[in-house]
Amino acid sequence: MIASPSAARDYSGPIIETEALHKRYPGVTALDSLRLRVEPGVVGLVGPNGAGKSTLLKILLGLLQPTSGSATVLGFDVARQSMQVRDLVGYSPEHDCIPGDMSAVNFVVHMARMSGIPAKAARERAAEALRYVGLFEERYRHMQGYSTGMKQRVKLAQAIAHDPRLLFLDEPTNGLDPEGRDEMLALIERVGREFGMAIVMSSHLLSEIERVCDGLVLIEQGRLVRAGRIAELTDETSVLVVDLEGDAAPLASQLRGQGVEAAADGRRLEILVQPEEALPVRDAVVAAVADAGLPLLRLEQRRRQLEELFEPGQREPVA
């Protein structure tokens, strides 16, 4: 446990730890015995809508009480020490939280003051935070005319203005067009790499997480499905892609007969390969292709995409 706030700023243990965390609403279990340990870095919290991502973030902030179980954030217990947690955390909720009748600069100044930053410093930090997120002249305008992208930026600015150690960003790219999405992801990446803030970012899009995050927590129906470093998760297995001149289906079923996890997609053969058996599988595939007499157009081994690890249809290769 950490004694003082300044010591907390140098904390280097896991940013989040939960033990048998349970949250039940009438008729719905939002979190089910969630056991989690999240190391510092930029961490993606992924899961389908209703998986329990927002519930988890709210419990970690002390906005919701868990039904049972415990959780710590930056070493502080969220139930008993939520004040210390909130001192060190910045939060950008999923839903709109922008008061349209205020200017961005007044809003961010106010929110910095709400985190205890003195008035003068709050003005300086708000101006800087808004510059970091790319809002300049428009920050003096009332926010009711802002685009979704500008609002998302203000939400990020108010979350970083008090220089937190950890950011909770709930669906920060919600409602953005592809270009706005790219810009927001670049911004988040920069905040995580350069500003020295750990980030937990929820998203229902794996591609976003893969682009920005180095760690990943996947939850589904309130349960932990997988957690770890993305590089390790995607290195666990790789895919051998074989393009043929002809139908790949007979070859796929032949290979499956030999115990190889092969799937056919038209003229393409995709084979799941565990690292230790990469060479023998490769040899078996080349031999099978030669036996079938099909011209081989391409044979390529690549790392798996996150999506292939988790999308239900692609968890196992199917014919």
Partner: peptide, 15 residues
């Protein structure tokens, strides 16, 4: 106002 604009979670995530 705070309710209409959804600002309350921002207040309650602060100390």
């Amino acid at each position: 106002n705070d309710r209409r604009f959804g600002v309350l979670p921002l207040y309650f995530s602060r100390p």
